[in-house]
Amino acid sequence: MIVIENLSKKYADFPCVDNVSLTIAGGGVTSIIGPNGAGKSTLLSLIARLLDFDRGSVSVDGLDVTKTKSDVLAQRLSILRQDNHIASRLTVRDLVSFGRYPYSRGRLTDHDHAKVEEAIGFLHLDDLAERFLDELSGGQRQRAYIAMVLCQDTDYVLLDEPLNNLDMKHARNMMQLIRRAADELGKTIVLVMHDINFASWYSDHIVAMREGRVAHAGACHDIMQPEVLSSVYDMEIEVQEIAGKRISLFYA
C-alpha cells in the first residue's frame, strides 16, 4: 500500500503538486490521468524519491521514502520515467542486468541471471539482447527499459507513460503485459497515462488529477463517467459502454 499524506511540491513558487493525500492499495493496476501540467509525473517522481518534496509524507508498505535507505527501497519499488536518454553504449542485456543491482551490486548470481533472461523473454527481446541501445528503435528501447524495471522485481512498479514511442500493436502488448505482471506476479503497478481509453480498459483504479490536486479517485467505472471526465479535462467527453468496458468519445 502506498500512502501519500499532504504532499506538496513547488517549482519556482508554482505549486506543481498541491497538498495531495491519496492511498493506493496493494495489487492491481492504478492509472493516473489528467491534462498536461496536472502534476501526474511529478507525483510519481515524488513517490519514488527521485524528487525532494516540500511538505507531506509518502510511505510504501510502511517505509517512509525519505527515511528508508535508498538501496532497501530499490528492492521494493521501481520507477521508469518518460523520455529516458542513456548516452552510453550498453547492450540490452547489460541494461536489463542492471535491474539486479539492488540485490547483487553488479556480481550477478545464477538467480540474477535467470531473472535477467526471464525479463528479456517477458518483453520479447531475445533477438535484440546483444544489440546496443543506440542501435534500437524508440519502441524497442522503451521495451528494454521496461524489462530492466521488471528485472528489478519489486512489489511496486511505477511507470510514467509506458506507451511512449509504442505503435498500436506494441502499446496493446505492453498493457497486456502490465496486466499480466499485476495478475500473475502479484505486482502493484501505478501508471501515468495519457490515453484514457487504454487506462479504462486495463486498470482497476483511476486517479484523476487537475492543477496539482487529486480531483477524483476510485474504481475504473466510477471515474469513467462523462461528468467526471468532462470536469477533469475541461471539455465535452461522452462515455459509452463497449464490450463491458467504458470507452470515452471526445474526437468530435
Binding site: 517522481s45 519514488a48 524519491r49 527521485l50 535507505k69 535508498s70 538501496d71 532497501v72 527501497l73 530499490a74 528492492q75 521501481s78 520507477i79 521508469l80 520515467r81 529516458n84 536518454h85 542513456i86 548516452a87 552510453s88 550498453l90 547489460d94 542492471f98 535491474g99 543491482y101 539492488p102 524495471v149 528489478q152
Partner: peptide, 14 residues
C-alpha cells in the same frame, strides 16, 4: 556505469 545512465536510473536502483 550506472552513474552514466543519469540521476533517475541511479536513484531508482538504490
Amino acid at each position: 556505469t550506472l552513474a552514466a545512465m543519469g540521476k533517475d536510473f541511479t536513484t531508482n536502483l538504490g
